[in-house]
Simulated assay, not measured.
Amino acid sequence: MEHGTTRSSTGTNVVHTGSVFGAPCWVSLTSRDLDTTQRFYSAVLGWRWRTARLGDRFLTALADGIPVAGVAGMATVWHMPVAWTPYFAVADADETVARVRERGGTVAVGPLSFAPGRAALLADRDGAIFGVWQGRLVTEWEAWRQAAPVFVTLHTRDAFDAAIFYGEILGWASGRSGCCEVEYEGEEVVLRSQGSVVARIESGAVDTAPDRSLRPHWQVHFVVADVPGCARAAREHGGDVLAESEHEAALRDPDGALFMVSSSRDH
């Protein structure tokens, strides 16, 4: 298991998931067409790209040169839906996967070992897809959140039941150093890490809704300076704007992946 911060052979700090366990630490997108995906997100979010270590079908998105998201052009090969998925930092992927099984969740993939750590793709009891990551962070946590920046929201059947499920598997409010704190604000559950709000859980999703955007799911938000500009760019590059206000817009990329752009994390 990896914990906290160590120093690499070059003398730079290497941050591991144990230092921010339970918090979102990465987001990834499954795509059908990498070329279209690159053009769309370059126009909407200003990202640049590099090939990831896993091969030509995998890309890393860069914001101001900092890695902020992964894209896998494998939706057709893996028979997976096109979607954005958040990954949560864990100290031990195997232990977390065992907890998911014990508590009625589903293990879709993994844990699999990669050069810097281990990952698993999972679903909670209501079918919302999420991932976990153990090991060296792709980007140091604070740098990642400032560069992306990213916020995630779980739309689920029962926010309080979901908070118990995720709290038990991810160690929220466990009292351990570095763990996330859970707060209840009316009908909403708020997750904080190192004093910052990093996720929210909201009730109201319907398990059998014909529209998958209304079923339980994790939604990735990107905080941007110009929400109307992002919405306009999405339309111009083959995407859709599902809802739009001055401070927030629900967008769909050309492959069908849903995501949000917001002017603030405090939405």
Rank of each mutant, 00 (worst) to 15 (best):
A173M: 09
D207C: 06
S203L: 05
S203F: 06
P216T: 00
S196M: 15
R192I: 03
H221I: 11
R192L: 08
G171N: 11
C179T: 15
S193W: 10
S193G: 03
G204Y: 10
H221S: 08
P210L: 15
E183W: 12
L170S: 09
E185Y: 12
E183F: 12
P210C: 14
Y184M: 04
S193M: 09
A199N: 09
Q194W: 14
Y166F: 15
L191V: 13
G175N: 07
V198W: 01
G186F: 09
Q194V: 08
V223R: 06
V190W: 01
E181T: 04
V220S: 03
A173K: 04
F222K: 11
G195T: 02
F222L: 15
I201V: 11
E188V: 14
H221W: 14
Q219L: 15
V206I: 12
V190H: 00
G171K: 02
I169L: 13
G204D: 10
V198S: 00
R212N: 08
A205R: 00
R215T: 12
G186T: 13
C180V: 11
G178F: 06
G186A: 12
V220K: 03
E168Y: 02
G171W: 02
T208W: 04
A209V: 00
R176E: 13
V223D: 00
V197L: 08
T208H: 04
V220I: 11
G195D: 01
Q219S: 14
S174I: 04
G195F: 03
A209T: 01
H217N: 05
S177A: 11
V220W: 00
A209K: 05
R176D: 12
G186E: 13
W172G: 03
V190K: 00
E188I: 13
E188Q: 13
R212V: 11
Y166L: 08
P216F: 07
E181F: 02
E183Y: 12
